[in-house]
């Protein structure tokens, strides 16, 4: 487990949450039966998870749908009450000090709007300043600063309902930063955005993290978000943490595999070579997966014969593949 130390701003210990979900047998008979004698299923959404996050970190908190990541985040922000375990956010317990904690954290939920759609971003920012009890002059200064950082000049006075999704998300993030939170929870901030706008949002999040040293907890199904923003990743599956490691370790060591794309002068037979898996073999083009625990890259190149190579490209396994493999392993 990373991040344990005096700098920890989030410490979660043995956190668990159980949901009671009503179950109904099929058909009309089932519906009537469920009225008279309702049956419930106990869903263990979060099972005994522990981790901590240091100040200034950007961590990815990811997992497949229904893995328990949103439930965990909702407990960390004080929306849901845990059944077991403890959460310490900046020295506060979210289930007891929700209001006090609200002043120190910010949340952006990509699928929920917190802005007033009929007001302009500027009026919205003033509103958020007021609800966080920030003096007017400081709010003005903050808006000015964030307007520049997030490049909002063009649309700061346009009603939110007339903004594009990308512009709106930028404003949502700014609205969450008006009170200078120490921790920002970003739940799918780039959902539904086109690649160019996504890139822009990522750049702005990075810039904000650098400028204000804000700790960021990010959940996203977009692996590029994670790859480009986070140095550390926590993967949750079936309510448990299945991986908590640095992005570098995840990328280079978790699967210990590399991909070699090679164009040959002559065909080479690599069937049944231990540590090499042929992914594609078409004409003189080969795509190999090399297991570094069994074969080094130079061994693999020697097997191909260096004089026989016209062109070669060695790459890591795409992060997306690694992560889906971890998800699948967790399902077993």
């Amino acid at each position: 487990m990373k991040g344990v130390g005096s700098m920890a701003v989030i410490t979660v210990k043995k956190l668990s949450k159980v949901f009671k979900v009503k179950v109904k047998e099929k058909g009309l008979k089932g519906s009537l039966k469920s009225i008279i004698k309702p049956k419930y299923n106990i869903i263990k959404a979060v099972k005994n998870i522990s981790f901590s996050v240091d100040k200034g970190e950007i961590i990815a908190f990811i997992g497949p749908n229904g893995a328990g990541k949103s439930t965990s985040i909702k407990m960390m922000t004080g929306i849901l009450f845990p059944d077991n375990g403890t959460i310490d956010i900046l020295g506060l317990d979210p289930s007891k000090d929700r209001k006090r904690l609200a002043y120190s954290i910010g949340c952006v939920f990509g699928q929920k709007e917190q802005l007033w759609t009929h007001l302009t971003p500027y009026d919205n920012f003033k509103f958020f300043g007021a609800i966080y009890d920030i003096p007017e002059s400081i709010v003005e200064k903050k808006i000015e600063e964030l307007r520049e950082l997030f490049e909002l000049e063009e649309f700061i006075n346009t009603p939110v309902r007339n903004l594009s999704l990308g512009q709106r998300i930028r404003c949502e993030i700014v609205a969450s930063l008006i009170h200078e939170p120490k921790i920002l929870f970003l739940d799918e901030p780039t959902i539904g955005l086109d690649p160019v706008v996504k890139e822009k949002i990522r750049t702005l999040i990075k810039r904000m993290n650098k400028e204000y040293k804000t700790t960021v907890v990010l959940t996203s199904h977009d692996i590029s978000d994670i790859e480009k923003l986070c140095k550390r990743v926590i993967i949750v599956n079936k309510g448990q943490i299945v991986l908590d490691d640095t992005m570098d370790n995840l990328k280079y060591h978790y699967l210990n595999k590399k991909i070699i794309d090679v164009k040959m002068k002559e065909k080479v037979n690599l069937d049944d070579v231990e540590g090499i898996n042929i992914l594609k073999d078409k004409d003189y083009n080969l795509k190999l997966e090399v297991d570094l625990k069994k074969k080094t890259i130079s061994d693999a190149i020697n097997l191909l014969n260096i004089d026989n190579i016209i062109d070669i490209n060695i790459s890591n396994i795409p992060l997306e593949e690694i992560i889906s493999q971890i998800y699948k392993d967790g399902d077993k």
């Binding site: 922000t77 004080g78 929306i79 929700r98 209001k99 609200a102 949340c107 939920f109 929920k112 609800i131």
Partner: peptide, 11 residues
């Protein structure tokens, strides 16, 4: 569940 997003505001 919209109420949840009001819970985390200081009001």
């Amino acid at each position: 569940g919209n109420i949840a997003y009001n819970i985390i505001k200081p009001y």
